[in-house]
Design a protein around this nucleic acid. Structure first.
Length: 744
DNA sequence: GCGCCGGGAATG
DNA sequence: ATTCCCGGCGCC
């Protein structure tokens, strides 16, 4: 009897977004299982596919699976279910969802050739005596192998251990005293780092309550989601650690998601410090080999906890007890490429499938998450006091318009200047935050008004003093900084707008004796430099840490007593309905970087719109009021969480085609909505996207808005189908983003 | 009649 | 995505 399997074909195309049936040739019978990657004939080509499962009925001729292409089953039934859910929810192909789940790159198992004794222990002892006088080094090698039977050393390591060369080892091989053996090895990216073992801390009353609630859900295998709302420095991590310990006691496993930027050795140390070798770490800095090895450790059950960024939500555990999403509000949980999934939503879904508990931790919940606690979907747990009852720092908001009126033309308010000088004097540290890198954000000719723009994107170029180049922050484009205007050839070229480089220069001018560290994409490009800057600052090698977003996230510097925000308005002026939320979160997070030690901290926020509710309520550390205000706005405009959005981007190098197709799609959708006579779904656009040109492509967007995602999916699917019938859509890309974040 | 191009269909 | 197939058309 022939065996048949269903295969998802590795082609992201609509027409083949369905399983194809193949039979197993004799030599592969019993070898191929659901979850395996396989090589298959497809038309007259050979491509890859993923085995979804077995099947019996076949009423047509099948082709054979050619070979096994992965040494492991890359997903189990549960992860396949997650993939199916993702494909449906995010409106992508099953293969696209599957490829996000399986480890990327080639799955190569690394091996090494280790030296073994070829003779019995007894015999080896005799050999040592025999050769001792004439070949002492060879004898030493054999002795070493006798004493360290589990050392698994390769030739050169062994030679090094007894201070000789590999030639000596080879001679033993020739004599037949030793043999070689190939051994699988797992690369361990953290083997050189020692982690200080920690014991569970005595929880505070609030922590106890949270732990208790979570434990109950864990014990009942209740797929419950908790929002752990804990102000910065209130000890959320200790709660995570203790509930993970409970899951382990039950024989279950845990996933901890952390934003990429906070996946620092310190963060990892907290988990490895408590759980040691039971922790696997997954992040983008790992090579594909290292990544695969961490994946294998999980698969093999060697570890029980996976700590990692976004994609760690797919860690191949078999009995998940708990999924933790730290800093739940972070936008980096949303994947930028297809499938454009949000790890928080996948986590909640995966937990549901496993009867596992989900914990969303943050000081500044996303409106979505908090709304769901109000709706009763999630349970709210609060940590409202900082460890040791440290107060939240007072926040001063400075109106920069007033500064200008009082003839202060510097980028630093008088208050901030004063405070900075004071900290320097007291030998305390400061953090300065500015959400823009480079020196000047645009370069303009004062004669004719021409602004230097990227030729591939619809943005102005940023001047970088360090490289003396104009750079586009959206593509890789760099160009020389012109001496004369390319338009009118005048020499009056001026630099406007501030970036971190300029702030650094001015700050140094203001405080000549201060040691300043700048941390942004430009200074952290090289591997390890991010770490170095953080540790230099932590060990007091600098007085001021100046940087972008990166300085705001989760770091714990005990000697920082001042945080300065150069302009709070940058994120506020984004054309996005989440601008207010983003600003509140950002200000609250930066403010949380101060006053974490014995000394009290303070915050100075500079703004041109200090009366804005995001700024005022962040000043008061008042999340509740912020939420209440913001949620009313969302409700009034029917924005998420009161609705879902689907962003359809039409892009092409030919501008006319984009405009034509986008408009036509608009007509199709509108007539569809009209026929549907539905108030449920609305169409916004078509309009040029906020980045109307990006990497050489012109972009227009259409946004579908509605309370039921299913309605949106239907409208979207059928409209795109219709579009393909009416118009040849070659040369234009149409991409769909469900629950988009940013750039609206 | 032959060969080339383009659109549409099929890929197990 | 890529290949295949078939009909249409220009060739001379």
């Amino acid at each position: 009897m022939k065996k048949y399997v269903k295969v998802a074909v590795d082609l992201p195309v609509k027409q083949v977004n369905k399983p194809f049936t193949y039979h197993l040739p004799e030599e592969l019978e019993g070898e191929v299982e659901a979850g395996h990657k396989v090589k298959i004939p497809f038309g007259n080509r050979r491509i890859e596919g993923y085995v979804l499962g077995k099947t019996n009925e076949v009423d047509f001729e099948t082709k054979p699976i050619l070979e096994l292409a992965s040494p492991y089953r890359l997903f189990n039934q549960e992860l396949l279910r997650v993939a199916r859910w993702m494909a449906k929810y995010y409106q992508c192909y099953l293969i696209t969802a599957l490829k996000a789940i399986v480890p990327s790159g080639e799955q190569k198992i690394k091996t090494k050739r280790v030296v073994r004794l070829a003779q019995s222990l007894e015999k080896t002892g005799q050999i040592i005596e025999q050769i001792q006088s004439r070949a002492p080094k060879q004898a030493a090698i054999l002795s070493y192998l006798l004493e360290h039977p589990d050392a698994n050393l390769i030739m050169t390591e062994l030679a090094g251990a007894v201070d000789t060369t590999s030639g000596t080892v080879r001679r033993l091989k020739e004599k037949g005293f030793i043999s070689y053996q190939w051994l699988e090895v797992k690369r361990n990216p953290y083997q050189t780092t020692d982690f200080v073992q920690t014991e569970p801390l005595e929880p505070t009353a609030e922590q106890s309550l949270a732990i208790e609630e979570i434990s109950t859900a864990l014990a009942e295998a209740n797929a419950k989601t908790f929002l752990l709302k804990g102000i910065t420095g209130s000890g959320k991590t200790e709660v995570y650690l203790q509930v993970i310990a409970q899951a382990l006691t039950k024989g279950q496993e845990a996933i901890v998601l952390v934003p990429e930027i906070s996946l620092t050795p310190q963060t990892i140390a907290r988990f490895k410090g408590r759980f040691g070798e039971q922790v696997a770490v997954l992040h983008s800095q790992l090579s594909t080999g290292e990544r695969f090895d961490e994946w294998r450790k999980i698969k093999a059950g060697e570890v029980k906890i996976a700590v990692g960024a976004r994609s760690a939500v797919f860690a191949p555990f078999e009995d998940l007890g708990i999924i933790i999403i730290d800093e739940e509000h972070e936008t980096s949980y949303k994947q930028g490429e297809h499938p454009k999934y949000h790890a928080r939503e996948v986590a909640v879904k995966r937990a549901e499938l496993n009867g596992a508990v989900t914990i969303l931790g943050t000081a500044t919940p996303s409106l979505e998450a908090y709304y769901r606690t109000q709706a009763g979907d999630y349970q709210l747990l609060g940590l409202s006091t900082r460890i040791d009852d440290r107060p939240l720092p007072p926040v001063e908001v400075v109106d920069m318009r007033e500064e200008l009126k009082d003839d202060n033309r510097s980028m630093f308010s008088r208050l901030l200047q004063e405070k900075l000088a004071q900290m320097l004097e007291q030998n305390e540290q400061s953090i300065i935050f500015l959400n823009r890198r480079g020196f000047s954000t645009f370069v303009q000719c004062r004669e004719c008004g021409y602004v230097m723009e990227c030729e591939a994107c619809d943005v102005s170029l940023t001047y970088h003093a360090q490289s003396n180049l104009l750079q586009c922050h959206y593509c890789d484009h760099k160009e020389r900084n012109p001496d004369i205007c390319p338009e009118c050839e005048s020499r009056y070229i001026k630099y406007f707008g501030l970036g971190t480089e300029k702030v650094e220069e001015q700050l140094q001018e203001l405080l000549p004796e201060a040691n300043i560290l700048r941390m942004d994409v430009d200074t952290t490009r090289r591997k390890g430099s991010y770490q170095r800057i953080l540790s230099d600052f932590k060990t007091g090698k600098a007085d001021i840490l100046l940087g972008t977003q990166m300085v705001a996230k989760g770091h714990d510097f005990s000697n920082v007593t001042l945080v300065g925000v150069i302009t709070a308005d940058t994120s506020l002026n984004f054309p996005d309905f989440r601008a207010g939320e983003r600003t509140f979160q950002l200000l609250t997070q930066v403010a949380g970087r101060t006053g974490r030690g014995d000394k009290a901290g303070e915050v100075v926020v500079q703004s041109y719109t200090p009366e804005h509710y995001s700024i005022q309520l962040a000043k008061e550390h008042d999340y509740e009021s912020f939420y209440n205000y913001e949620i009313e706005q969302r409700k009034a405009c029917l924005y998420p969480p009161y609705s879902h959005l689907v962003n359809i981007i039409v892009a092409s190098e030919e501008e006319e085609r984009v405009i034509k197709i986008a408009n036509q799609l608009g007509v199709i959708i509108n007539s569809y909505l009209h026929n549907l006579d539905s108030e449920e779904v609305m169409l916004l656009g078509p309009v040029p996207a906020p980045l109307s040109k990006l990497k050489g492509e012109f972009r227009w967007q259409l946004i579908l808005k509605g309370t039921e995602l299913e309605d949106l999916r239907q409208v979207n699917e059928e409209s795109l189908e219709q579009l393909k019938e009416e118009e040849s859509v070659e040369t234009v890309r149409v991409s769909v983003d469900v629950d988009p974040i940013g750039m609206l």
